[in-house]
Computed example of a mutant assay.
Amino acid sequence: MAVLECKELTKRYGGVSALNHVNLQVEPGRIVGLLGPNGSGKTTLIKLANGLLTPSEGEILVCGSVPGRESHTSVSYLPERTAIPTWMSAAQLMDFYGDFYRDFRRDAAEEMLQRLGIFPRQRIKQMSKGTREKVQLIMVMSRAAKLYLLDEPIGGVDPATRDYILSTIITNYNPEASVIISTHLISDVEKVLDDVIFINQGQVVLQSSVDEIREEKGMSVDALFREVFKC
């Protein structure tokens, strides 16, 4: 069964379509790049999959269910902006996640915090912006979810941290789960992707495996993206 399925999915804000009759499937065990220019509909699709928005038309299913209370147990979501309580320490945040999510793996979170030199007793508000982003990603990736939705997980961090974040994503997700990474930093994420979905003006313009792009087009995902979306 597909982890994520969209059938003629449409979302309008007033008279403007953010998504327009989108059809796609994401199978288990794949790391998928959701790629497109700013304003193409990437965040809208992720919010629909997380149940934060409802479709105007069509259907979206997560593990066979309409997004809602039931699907929240299957989905681990990293929003575009840091959204963790800053008055908490990292240890309190782990307690909070442990209480809230039955699938939270505290041992995995503690190991990642230690590897990054983040002290569990340090309060979030005392951390730099980049460290806060790392802590939030650690919490998200420490769940044994079926679908990880990561909205711009590497947007605001330095290149060395990007590499760490990508290796964290690869090594900490359940192999039967899928990861969807929304980003415009394609050359950075390309090495970890199995599949890509190109989206523009609310429509899917390409869905392909990375291997097919390299074999059939003879170019990298980044080069193809630049060709498809050149101004």
Rank of each mutant, 00 (worst) to 15 (best):
D188W: 03
I138C: 09
A108K: 12
K230Q: 14
I169Y: 03
Y148L: 08
R102V: 02
F96R: 06
G39V: 02
D103H: 02
V135P: 08
S209C: 11
Q201A: 12
N174F: 03
E212D: 15
L78A: 02
V189A: 14
W87S: 14
G155W: 04
K230A: 11
V32D: 03
N172R: 14
L137P: 07
M94E: 09
L78M: 07
E216F: 10
D188N: 11
M88K: 10
R226M: 11
I138F: 10
P79K: 10
R123M: 08
S128K: 09
L224P: 07
G58P: 06
Y148P: 03
D163S: 13
L93F: 08
I186P: 02
T82R: 08
H184P: 01
T43M: 05
G14E: 02
T44L: 08
E8Q: 12
E190A: 09
N20W: 02
G29K: 13
D188C: 04
P85V: 07
I46Q: 01
I169W: 00
L113N: 05
L48F: 04
E110T: 07
Q126M: 09
D195A: 06
S65P: 00
G130F: 05
I181L: 14
M219S: 14
E190N: 10
L19P: 02
S208I: 10
L61R: 15
L4Q: 08
G58L: 06
E133M: 13
E27L: 13
T86K: 15
I199W: 02
P67G: 10
D99H: 11
K191S: 15
V62D: 06
I213L: 12
G29N: 11
H72W: 13
D95F: 09
V157S: 10
D95L: 12
